[in-house]
């Protein structure tokens, strides 16, 4: 496997994904700027890019709030399918996980005193949204936004 890049510069298709480590609130800025740069590489329109960066910000904030010690990683890469391009980002943490996924995907559900829009809201913003959570083991969410 190709080594992971840690710099926040955008990656062309086929290159190693960019890794952003989350250890605190300040890292949200890095997640947003990495996603924005990658959106440009993939040729996302302004609205698609804005939705991507916003969803990424929500998911990264979830990690800061709910993951163990607020730590996790985000992998950002250019997705390619046929002739369309997009940005795929994977948010992983080894936090407590989500016990009731169905409830967590419903507007208004929150275990942390926020509005509980993070998960369902992010899903509405994205072309693709997959969540995998094991209570006690952590949560991985993969989002993808295409350029058309």
């Amino acid at each position: 496997m190709t080594p992971l890049a840690t710099a926040a510069e955008p990656r062309a298709p086929g290159e190693a994904p960019t890794l952003v480590q989350i250890t605190g609130e300040a890292d949200l800025l890095r997640v947003r700027s990495t996603l924005r740069a990658q959106a440009q590489v993939a040729g996302l329109g302004l609205t698609a890019a804005t939705k991507l960066v916003t969803a990424g910000s929500e998911l990264a904030r979830n990690i800061v709030r709910y993951a163990t010690h607020g730590q996790g990683v985000v992998l950002v890469e250019t997705a390619e399918e046929g002739s369309r391009r997009g940005v795929r980002a994977r948010f992983s943490d080894d936090g407590p996980g989500i016990v009731d996924l169905g409830a967590a995907m419903t507007d208004g559900y929150s275990s942390g005193g926020s509005m509980g829009l993070g998960l369902p809201g992010s899903r509405r913003l994205m072309d693709e949204f997959e969540i995998d959570s094991v209570p006690g083991r952590g949560t991985t969410i993969v989002i993808c936004q295409w350029n058309r």
Binding site: T50, K51, T54, E58, R124, L125
Partner: peptide
């Protein structure tokens, strides 16, 4: 883009 995102986000 921000307006439509806020509406979708709910």
């Amino acid at each position: 883009a921000v307006a439509i995102t806020l509406v979708e986000l709910g």
